[in-house]
């Protein structure tokens, strides 16, 4: 059966992408706001729950502390998930370019 977090939700996807560099929770939110051009702004509870979830599945891990904040980074397993999602999305994107009317059904 498919993993219950797959395909990745927008939130999870952005968090994994952001954590290719080590960051603490709030910095993850700020980075996502920036890289999504302000379209994805995570709320506190959503971010906390998502980090918990990704950590539980071993896709991210804690790599240290900055004061009372925990710093996280993507794991090898998490990177493999991103690779899989990239291929899935590339395939979907390739379908956009195809002209449907020329195809035999």
């Amino acid at each position: 059966m498919k993993h219950k977090l797959l395909p990745l939700s927008e939130t999870m996807h952005y968090i994994l992408l952001a954590l290719r560099e080590p960051l603490h929770g709030y910095a993850v939110m700020q980075k996502i706001e920036k890289i999504s051009n302000g379209t994805v702004i995570l709320a506190a509870g959503t971010l906390y729950g998502a980090i918990e979830n990704l950590n539980k599945h071993g896709w991210i891990e804690s790599v240290g502390n900055s004061g009372r904040r925990k710093i996280y980074m993507i794991t090898v397993e998490g990177s493999a998930i991103l690779k899989m999602e990239q291929e899935r999305l590339l395939h979907i994107l390739s379908l956009y370019g195809r002209d449907e009317s020329n195809e035999d059904v």
Binding site: M12, I41, T46
Partner: peptide
Amino acid sequence: YWQKEEDNQNEIFSDRQSKGNY
């Protein structure tokens, strides 16, 4: 119980998945 001053971000959940889990 969480309280904050009102601004443009007044929710604690921002997506469907986390609201469902709540």
